[in-house]
């Protein structure tokens, strides 16, 4: 079962996304040739998954949960304060390429809301003050 011992496409895309912050045209060309998958098909796959980006993102990708339980815990205030503090909207990146903001569905920490992840790190029990502090402390 040689297929089983190959790296899955999703894993390969994750590794590129993690290293470079996005999946470039050259990456796609390379994967397309290596795996013998049409480029258009790869684009279709990549764009289906919200964690993959075709354009460069900020050094820090902020994802704030906006699903029911967090919304009951006022996640809207958290989103608002991040937007104001960074001067960007949803799915936008700051001009210095430091931060991108995404509003996402349940992050599985509903008992500790409101919640966000920045890259690999979870931040729970957020308050508007705490969020500003967290952002200011990232370099």
């Amino acid at each position: 079962m040689e297929k089983y011992y190959e790296k899955e496409l999703l894993e390969e895309l994750h590794d590129i996304q993690e290293t470079y912050g996005f999946i470039s045209e050259e990456d796609i060309l390379r994967i397309s040739e290596k795996r013998d998958i049409p480029k258009a098909h790869l684009y279709g796959v990549i764009s289906f998954y919200s964690m993959f980006h075709l354009k460069p993102t900020g050094k820090y990708i902020i994802k704030v949960c906006d699903s029911v339980s967090c919304s009951l815990n006022h996640s809207a205030d958290i989103v608002k304060v991040i937007k104001e503090h960074l001067g960007i909207g949803e799915n936008e990146t700051t001009r210095d390429k430091k931060f991108s903001l995404e509003v996402v569905e349940c992050l599985g920490h509903c008992d500790e809301g409101p919640v966000m992840i920045i890259n690999d790190t979870y931040y729970t029990h957020l308050t508007t003050n705490k969020v500003v502090q967290i952002l200011d402390n990232l370099d």
């Binding site: 699903s67 029911v68 339980s69 569905e105 349940c106 599985g108 920490h109 509903c110 008992d111």
Partner: peptide, 11 residues
């Protein structure tokens, strides 16, 4: 793939 809002037992 636990993603149903309000569910975190698999995590």
């Amino acid at each position: 793939d636990e993603g149903e809002p309000g569910t975190f037992k698999d995590r």
